[in-house]
Amino acid sequence: MMLSIVLPTGRVFDEAVEVLGEIGLPTGKLSHKGRSLVIEDGGWRYFLAKPMDVPLFVHSGIADIGLAGSDVLWETNATLIELADTRRGLCRLVVAGPQAVAPRFMGHESALMWLKVATKYPRIADSHFSSKGVQVEVVHLHGSVELAPRLGLADCILDIVQTGATLEANHLTVLEEVAPVSLRMVASRYGIQRGWSSILPLVEKLLETTKERSPKSE
């Protein structure tokens, strides 16, 4: 039985491939993928997809397993089984904005009412501010979110931040932490029923390697 795995392209692709290598899956062809989006290697079929589309590929049953950021999983809200946290692709979801907006985040939550928030994550933004009882105006952008406050399109942004360099370059500071983000191994409900005997050893191996990598947190 050939199992299929969908991997995110872009920023976390290399780390996703490293995770596969660590848990003993063949990665030779992934390292030389060229423009291929479907790669078969040693009895496994890999699909490459935009990070935001990975959960949908798994949810629909196209792929049995996937590696997706916890930000993307939260945003898409697909019905999936989250098998393990790889502790790779680490970053944070934050609200960031110009220093001038900072006082609104320091006082009563009513000061946040009708804030304009630019984001690639409209669902998370809505959920985050709704949980405070705050109504905001969400501006859904598909990229270059950091530009929005500078150009007057929004008061602040909700986005992922890794080193903070992009925020700094755009004169933005972190106003609020929303959630830590990491790469998660997920499976479809069908996938775990069909291929559990193959999937379980991968999860166990992954838990073992993450434990080895971060002994202090254990």
Binding site: V58, H59, S60, G61, I62, T79, S188, R189, Y190, G191, Q193, R194
Partner: peptide, 11 residues
Amino acid sequence: FDVFLEGVGVP
């Protein structure tokens, strides 16, 4: 119980 069809990710 859940009922699954081949290749469909959710029951």
